[in-house]
């Protein structure tokens, strides 16, 4: 069953120098119980795409087109009040980047979770407290830490509190924006384990945003690679990592060092990500691409589907069925 269906989403930011095309014509779908990794370098629009789903945009951000269907309902057509009451947190919740700053410093963590429950559901405080306690148990912190303040907890524990909070209203979809970037490797492994276990236990759908392809390789079953506001390739995790088709994906996949297996040379991409105020015409990757042809500078490559695995790519080098 499809939980989320994003089609041709366009989201631009207005700046003094013009419109920044942060998300340009992005489409993807997410099935129930699936986890989708949204990968790309900083500034490629991955966070903007996710925030558009919740319509949590800064004032200068505007959605210019497309549809975001969540369980059949177009989120872009909902009123702000309805969205806040019915969808946000209750149906779709988020785990924000940097748990250190996402918690209120002078409120006990338990109360913060209780607040997120009572704000959305009509339950008594007693019942909310019971639920908050079981949530803290669920993420492995233990109900005994209900009355702690955030500064009494370590980074990994704070991140788990945030995870508990995101699950407070039994959402169908959780959007996690770089949930582990601020954490050390060992703590990162702990937090990811909690997230993976919960996803299976609760049959959650999840969107994981990260620049770290190694992390996504282990946690997601589908991956979408973004470059300069567009999704250039998406497919099953195995096929993205084993048979990447887009030149950018090929480079990116091999740019990460591996601790096991033979020591392969790390690839790098010359140049730097484009300015989204004036993105390169046609294929946005052509100035950095080793295989760029004449057509890449003139015509934007359409998204084509390859094979039975639901693998799609936007590159002139690849021919496949058009959607």
């Amino acid at each position: 069953m499809q939980v989320l269906n994003v089609e041709n989403l366009k989201m631009y930011f207005l700046t003094l120098r013009g419109w920044v095309k942060a998300v340009d014509d992005v489409s993807f779908t997410l099935d129930k119980g699936d986890s989708l990794g949204l990968a790309g370098e900083s500034g490629c629009g991955k966070t903007s795409a996710a925030l558009s789903i919740l319509r949590l945009l800064p004032r200068n951000g505007k959605i210019f087109g497309g549809t975001i269907k969540f369980e059949g309902q177009d989120i872009l057509k909902l009123g702000e009040k309805e969205l806040r009451r019915e969808i946000r947190w209750k149906k779709i919740s988020t785990i924000f980047q940097g748990a250190m700053n996402a918690l209120h410093p002078t409120t006990r963590v338990g109360d913060q979770i209780i607040e997120s429950i009572t704000a959305h559901e009509n339950v008594s405080k007693k019942e909310a407290r019971k639920r908050a306690e079981s949530l803290l148990d669920l993420v492995g912190i233990g109900a005994s830490r209900m009355d702690r303040y955030p500064h009494e907890l370590s980074g990994g524990m704070k991140q788990r509190v945030i995870i508990a909070m995101s699950l407070a209203c039994n959402p169908d979809l959780v959007i996690a924006d770089e949930p582990t970037t601020a954490l050390d490797v060992i703590i990162e492994a702990q937090v990811l384990k909690v997230m993976k276990d919960l996803q299976h236990k609760l049959n959650l759908s999840m969107i994981l945003i990260s620049h770290d392809l190694s992390m996504l390789a282990e946690t997601c079953n589908r991956v979408a690679i973004m470059y300069a506001g567009k999704i250039v390739e998406q497919g099953d995790t195995a096929s993205i990592y084993k048979e990447p088709l887009h030149p950018y994906t090929q480079k990116l996949v091999t740019a990460f060092p591996s601790i096991i297996g033979p020591k392969k040379e790390l690839s790098s991409i010359h140049g730097f990500p484009p300015d989204l105020l004036n993105p390169p015409p046609a294929c946005r990757f052509h100035p950095r691409c080793n295989y760029a042809m004449e057509i890449c500078r003139k015509v934007e490559p359409p998204i084509v589907f390859i094979g039975p695995k639901n693998h799609s790519v936007a590159c002139h080098l690849i021919s496949g069925e058009k959607s």
Partner: peptide, 16 residues
């Protein structure tokens, strides 16, 4: 604890 950029590899799980 280091994630491996290869979905087919199952690393040994030693979570401290």
């Amino acid at each position: 604890a280091v994630p491996v950029p290869d979905p087919t590899v199952k690393r040994t799980e030693i979570v401290l």
